[in-house]
Structure formats: structure tokens, C-alpha cells
Design a protein around this nucleic acid. Sequence first.
DNA 1: GCATAAGATGACTTGAAGGTCATATACTCT
DNA 2: AGAGTATATGACCTTCAAGTCATCTTATGC
Lengths: 163, 163
Amino acid sequence: MLSQTTGYAVLALGFVAEAQGRPLLVKEISEATGIPRSYLAKIVNQLSRKGLVATQRGIGGGVTLGRPAAKITLYDICSALDDPLLKGGCMLGTAECSDERACPAHSFWSTHRDRQIRFLHENNLADVAAFESRQRKTRLRETRRTKKAAEEAGRVRFKEASQ
Amino acid sequence: MLSQTTGYAVLALGFVAEAQGRPLLVKEISEATGIPRSYLAKIVNQLSRKGLVATQRGIGGGVTLGRPAAKITLYDICSALDDPLLKGGCMLGTAECSDERACPAHSFWSTHRDRQIRFLHENNLADVAAFESRQRKTRLRETRRTKKAAEEAGRVRFKEASQ
DNA sequence: GCATAAGATGACTTGAAGGTCATATACTCT
DNA sequence: AGAGTATATGACCTTCAAGTCATCTTATGC
């Protein structure tokens, strides 16, 4: 599971991606996503130092993506925010676990960790934006939607790390 | 990833399981595993309230398993210690993520979470103890062991959540 | 019953993540 | 230049997991 901070960043940037280049205010993003405004400002600032977003102060300013949405992967975001997931550590959280001196869950965990990392590499902000806008549309169309339908709507284009 | 506390508990109980019924002191377990002694005492106490271990004070006392090692799964331990993994929460850590209102990673995450939970159900303390004692033996036998060999030693009997 | 050995328990400390707030800085428009 | 609008930044607060420590309680053996 990603840190809450990283989760915020993905949601926020997904929203920015949907705006297609129009600068969004931190305030707008915050209100749309429910992320605390001041905290989001810090996250945006971190992302801008890493070049993932561009920020502009003053009238007409706001936040835009630093490069095309399809070129910003979830992994890039994790990496920019130094997410703990990328720092290793085995399932049982023991220091002394490595390929040489494995803990009981090591083999299992390596596999799962790899899948997660692959997932992060395979999905980018264009995917997130598409997913989000699709969900919004679907929700408008069907007032009483089934759980299955909701899952389908999500499944359509978001890449699952195969196997 | 499990909490550090849960990780401690698995290691400690695996060690207790290896003792085959002979009571072990918290001090012994702590020294053998490197888990901080006072903290381990608290964990053991929690586990004993849940019945996973039996404790005995006074001379000749110590910690034993509350039931046969094969009947204590990793899931039981997580559950006894209220591990965050069992509390839900999606990959992006957002509150508003459910099957109905999914976040972009929801489908991916549900699958992986299920695999993890299954893994916890399928592996018990007998498995952990067998794994650990096997590892110790293997390490004695080969001074210069390859990474592959080490992985094999672990792979032999520990169940991978299939798929 | 006393000495000793063990776990039990509660108060306290520490460190990191998450979050708030006041103020500084940079930009635009008139 | 000055007013107004944005992000930037650092100081601070809060919460929680992890860890320490002193003291209490319960057991055994003489």
C-alpha cells in the first residue's frame, strides 16, 4: 500500500491531467479531491522540484503537468515522493532479510513486490485521467449501478500487472 | 507489508514453535531473534490474551504455544495484533474507495490483497519453524552458498499463494 | 514465609508521517 | 509603483507506532 501522501499526489495529478493543460489552482484541486489544501500545496511543491509539475504564481497561475500525462507513471510519482514501498523491506519487516538470508515470507513477498512495481510502471497519469472521467460519466448514466458494472467500468482500460 | 510488530510476533512464535513445547523465556527469544526485550514482552502479553500463547511466571516458566503450531496461522497472528493489513484501505489510501466508487488502482489492489490474505491463511507456525530450522541447517552445510541455493532452500515447503 | 524468578502493566519517551498556519516571495494587471 | 493573486517555505502541532523503564503481581523452591 502506498503512503497517503503518494495517494494524494496520484489523485491530484490525475485531476490536473484531466484539465488538459489549463492551469489549476491548488485550491481547486483541493476542493475537488478533498485533499487538505495546505498539505497539498507542499506535495505540489515537492513534485515541482522533481519536474513532474510546473507551477506558476500570480494571476492566471496554477499547476500544470511538467510533461505529457502519458509520460508520467505512477512509479515516477512514488519515486519523487520517496514512497516507502520503493525502499525495500520484506513482508515481516525484518532488517536482516535478503535473498541470502531469507525470512519465511521472502520468496512470496519478492514476487508480490515485483508485481506492484510493475503496476506502477505500467500505469500513467493519462490512464488515471481516463479512468476518472470514465467513472464520472458512468456514474451519471446509471443512477442505480450494480457493483459488477462499476468494476467493469474501471477494468476496461486500466492495466493490470499481468500475472 | 505487515507492521513491524506483527513481523516480530511471527519470528518470535516461529522460534517458540521450534522449541517443541519447552517453555522459552522472553529474554531467550529476544536474544535469539534480536527483538527488543521489553517490547517483545508486550507483544507476548497481547498474544497470550488472545490465546495464541500460554505464559507461565516464576521459575521454570516462560512462553509456550497456546495450541499446536500447525493450528496457528499467520492470519491468526495478524488478527490478534490487529495488523493494519486486515483493516482494508486501498492502494492509494483514499477513504472513499470501495467496489462502488473505485480508485484507479482498486481492481488491481483487491486482487493483490486477496493473495496476501490467502498467503496468511495458508501458512502456519509449523511452516515457519520448518523453514527456519531448514535454513539454519542449510547455512551450516554450505559455507559458500549461491543466491539460487538459498532461495531453493526456502522455496521447498513454504506455500506460495497460488496465482 | 522468604528469596528469587518470571511475566504483567502502566507511565513515559522518541521519531516519523500527516497536517496547520503565518508569512515570504513571485507574478500579473492597471 | 501598487494592489491583488498565487505558490513557497519554515515553524509548529498532532497522532500513532515503536520502544523504554520502573514497578507490580504471580509462581517456584527452600
